[in-house]
Design a protein around this nucleic acid. Structure first.
Lengths: 191, 191
DNA sequence: CGAGGCCTTGACCGCGGTCAATGCCCGTGG
DNA sequence: CCACGGGCATTGACCGCGGTCAAGGCCTCG
């Protein structure tokens, strides 16, 4: 009897196919979590000690700046979600993670994961490749914030996925770096 | 006779101390390059196949958007400099690297480096940690572009290092996402 | 000494900000 | 079942930051 392996390996295998021993060890760390709409997945102010993958639903990373709720990142089904500035430094982060809908997550304890890096080189490689992709995505986001107008950024965002339409405008506005009022006008101007 | 080891290992060791075999193998890949002021280090439009560390001087990553010269990144002594969106995807990039002063670089062939990842786990770990730091830096930059005014971004930039004062204003302006005219006014307003 | 590169400054404009009023949707309680 | 209230989006009035275009000053270098 082969123990059942989590479907996330369909995704992992496309990035890097780890050896059977590594696969078994990694499989042990996979946990499933469910959150209801608007529920907090991770508190603001703590340290990031969990790597999540979104199985279904939408989540966001957010924080407060001068009392305002700012969205830093959206994550949809298939996306990894971590507060990297904490995960990779050990520092606590002002950012939290929240479910924007009923959400199912795959959760991996980061301390155990990093321990696996020592015993299973393949696991370190897999996650190195995953986070390299995230790094590249962050650079793309820098480019868009540095060079594009809010209208262009909005258009780019809506065409990545139509799930965007399920997200409240105020969250999208702060993600774009503008106010909700301005975003409302931008949308009005596009009609 | 121990073969001489490059001083960059003072920097590497603070991040992760690789075993002697890995150190020797990595040491083999280290090359020194010199460029004069304004010289191109990497052409725009090619693929990133080199990891650089700045030994002395200042370099920048730049590209052209609608005919305009845009600075994406500055690198000073001690900084790593790569065009990550190409290095980690294999895709060519519209970005180039240029010396802003007389520059000395440590250059590492990326193909050979990645090959070392297979034979020396330690090397993969070292560079994983280096690029994780760069990823965190990219996230910080996203935050500043998303939330801060140009004046704040400028103030933050000048207080990272006073070497900023050696960089032409127009390069700084595009890095901040504004025009050189606006940056000139911002500076005037600070006096 | 003239030319060109770079920074500054003025005039003007539009995008996006703030503040506030209004409209719309929906959940809850009388 | 309707009335009310609260949360969210839209819209108007107004303003300021940063954009464009263009002129002028300053420095460097041939």
């Amino acid at each position: 009897m082969v123990p059942s392996v989590h479907p996330i390996f369909n995704y992992f295998d496309r990035i890097y196919r780890v050896c059977p021993a590594a696969r078994a060890a990694l499989n042990e760390l996979l946990g499933k979590e469910r959150y209801t709409k608007n529920e907090l997945i991770q508190q603001t102010g703590n340290s990031c000690r969990t790597v999540y993958f979104v199985s279904s639903g939408i989540a966001r990373i957010f924080f407060y700046k001068d009392g305002e709720d700012i969205t830093e990142h959206f994550a949809f089904a298939g996306d990894v979600i971590v507060r990297a500035e904490s995960l990779f430094t050990g520092e606590p982060t002002p950012k939290g993670i929240q479910a924007l809908q009923e959400v199912e997550l795959l959760a991996i304890d980061a301390v155990k994961l990093f321990a696996l890096y020592d015993t299973h080189h393949d696991v370190e490689r897999l996650f190195r490749l995953i986070f390299e992709q995230e790094y590249v995505a962050a650079i793309k986001r820098v480019e868009s914030l540095q060079l594009q107008h809010a209208t262009e950024r909005y258009l780019d965002l809506v065409q990545t996925t139509d799930l965007i339409n399920q997200i409240p405008l105020r969250y999208i506005a702060s993600y774009l770096g503008i106010t909700q009022v301005s975003l409302s006008r931008i949308r009005a101007g596009l009609r």
